[in-house]
Simulated assay, not measured.
Amino acid sequence: MSISGLNTLKKGQHYTAKELDSFISTTDAVLLSNNENQLFTDPEREYKVTHELDGFFEHSEEDAEKHFREKKAYVVEKA
């Protein structure tokens, strides 16, 4: 599966770590994984997109406030 030029992932679809790496390298998005920091260690491991979010809250160190960031975020789990 090639995702060259793809600007979104689809909930319920499976992607290899290699495909996710390519996607996140070219897209302004966030990937959240249940695989801790090992998401990209095995390029052929498959992940399923379980959630797609339009944004998230983030704490700012600058003003000590919480701000909503309008940025796509995807939750992926090992398939």
Rank of each mutant, 00 (worst) to 15 (best):
V76Q: 01
E19Y: 04
T8H: 15
D42A: 10
E77I: 10
K72D: 05
E19D: 10
R69W: 14
Q38I: 06
F57Q: 12
Y74H: 13
K11E: 08
Y15E: 06
H51P: 02
Y47D: 00
E65I: 01
V76Y: 04
T50N: 06
E70R: 14
E77R: 05
Y74S: 09
D21S: 07
T27Y: 09
E36N: 12
E77H: 05
L20W: 02
A64M: 05
I24Y: 01
E65P: 01
E62G: 12
E70I: 04
E65Y: 08
E44Q: 06
A29C: 10
Y47L: 00
Q13I: 02
T26R: 13
E77M: 13
H67Y: 13
G12H: 04
E36M: 10
G5S: 02
T50W: 03
K66C: 08
P43K: 01
A79F: 03
L32N: 03
E44L: 06
D28G: 15
K71M: 13
K48E: 13
E77L: 03
K10Q: 07
K78L: 02
A73K: 01
F56L: 03
E52G: 11
R45N: 01
S22M: 09
K48G: 04
N37C: 07
V49I: 14
K10F: 01
S22N: 11
K11H: 05
G5R: 06
E19M: 03
E65A: 05
D54N: 12
E65T: 05
E70F: 09
T16V: 12
N37M: 10
E77Y: 11
K78H: 01
D28P: 14
Q38K: 12
E77K: 04
T27E: 08
G5E: 06
Y15L: 01
S2C: 07
F57D: 14
A29K: 05
K71A: 03
T8E: 14
E70G: 07
N34K: 07
V49G: 04
K71R: 15
V76S: 10
N37S: 11
V30Q: 06
I3R: 07
E19A: 06
T8L: 11
N35L: 07
N34H: 12
A79D: 11
D63I: 07
M1G: 11
K18D: 04
H51W: 05
G55W: 07
S60D: 09
E61F: 09
D63A: 09
E19I: 03
H14P: 14
V76W: 00
D42W: 05
S60L: 11
S2L: 11
S25N: 10
T41K: 09
K66V: 09
H51R: 14
F57H: 12
E58L: 13
